[in-house]
């Protein structure tokens, strides 16, 4: 994964960037499966590797751009910022429980109830589904709204009949 990500950072061909991103998502999906999050893996594969890639390609097709125009030197300001942020994160991990530790607090408070009672309460064996749709159903409503927002936004930005607007002289509100 890290290799893919690094490749994405270095590659200049935008087509490759999109593809790399797709591969990255697929790897991530595989990782999710390994970590027993099959629903997420499914979604990531469909969305990250599928939709995102298709959208990226469509964008490239529409804008007819292939490669970044300039080779950039490594920018030190951002690099420094990134290193600081990363260091902060690493610092934060130091007190984390070990990976997969069953005694971690995350497994001790809220989650067990889902595992214990959800089937009884909702009749749905897939706990992810029951939590998603019922216990935290409101989040999912929000999520659906986000999708609606994005679709409307894209419609608004790129929908048809934009021609009148584009051909009209863009008035420079600030000038």
């Amino acid at each position: 994964m890290a290799v893919t990500a690094l490749a994405l950072a270095r590659v200049r061909n935008l087509f490759a960037v999109v593809m790399m991103s797709g591969i990255f998502s697929l790897t991530a999906a595989a990782l999710y499966v390994v970590q027993d999050a099959v629903d997420v893996a499914f979604t990531e594969a469909a969305v990250g590797a599928g939709i995102a890639t298709v959208l990226g390609l469509a964008t490239l097709a529409v804008t007819r751009s292939e490669a970044e125009k300039k080779v950039r030197a490594v920018a030190f300001g951002p690099l420094l910022l990134v290193i600081v942020t990363g260091a902060a994160l690493i610092y934060g991990t130091l007190d984390m429980p070990d990976y997969g530790d069953p005694a971690a607090p995350i497994h001790g408070h809220v989650a067990p109830r889902y595992l214990a009672d959800s089937e009884k309460e909702t009749g749905v064996p897939n706990v992810v589904t029951s939590v998603l749709a019922s216990y935290r159903g409101y989040d999912t409503l929000g999520e659906t709204t986000v999708i609606l927002t994005a679709a409307c936004g894209v419609l608004m930005l790129l929908g048809r009949n934009r021609r009148q607007k584009r051909n009209a002289p863009t008035r420079d509100s600030a000038a």
Binding site: L89, L94, M96, I106, H109
Partner: peptide, 29 residues
């Protein structure tokens, strides 16, 4: 990170559980 250290996402619940882990570097971050 907060969720990781407390196992909850509810604000009131977090408030009740955070004091116990406030000293951890993860929570600082």
């Amino acid at each position: 990170m907060m969720y990781m250290m407390t196992g909850t996402l509810n604000m009131a619940d977090l408030a009740a559980r955070l004091p116990g882990v406030l000293h951890l570097r993860t929570i600082d971050m």
